[in-house]
């Protein structure tokens, strides 16, 4: 699992690559720390290369959402494959995020 962070004006983007399963989650939550540090901005989670997400992965998304809500920012999820989109739908997570 890889996380690539990029920053542009007012937007922090994390591109998630690979399987975001339970073992990977503890590492990923550390790697997205720059987004938590900029929670007042627009946080983009680019899922174009995300191949799997578990509950632990969803909790990371939720952690970012809560931090953004508290700091006046917001989270955008983009590039969902139909498999990951299915997970978001059956858990109701599509309602929690701005999906692009």
């Amino acid at each position: 699992m890889e996380v690539h962070i990029t920053e542009s004006e007012g937007t922090m983007t994390a591109r998630l690559v690979g399987r975001l399963d339970t073992p990977a989650s503890s590492e990923v939550i550390r790697e997205v720390q720059p987004l938590l540090d900029h929670a007042g901005e627009t946080l983009v989670l680019d899922c174009s290369d995300l191949t799997y997400i578990s509950s632990s992965g969803l909790r990371i998304f939720l952690t970012l959402r809560k931090a953004a809500a508290a700091a006046g920012g917001h989270v955008v999820v983009e590039g969902l494959s139909s498999e990951i989109r299915q997970v978001f739908m059956m858990t109701g997570f599509l309602q929690l995020f701005e999906i692009r």
Binding site: L58, M90, T91, Q95
Partner: peptide, 21 residues
């Protein structure tokens, strides 16, 4: 619908929108 979709997964976190959806 929910049983079919999540019973065989490890998904143990849901949003409250699942019911109306």
């Amino acid at each position: 619908i929910a049983c079919y979709q999540i019973a065989l997964t490890d998904l143990d976190i849901l949003a409250s929108s699942v019911a109306p959806q």
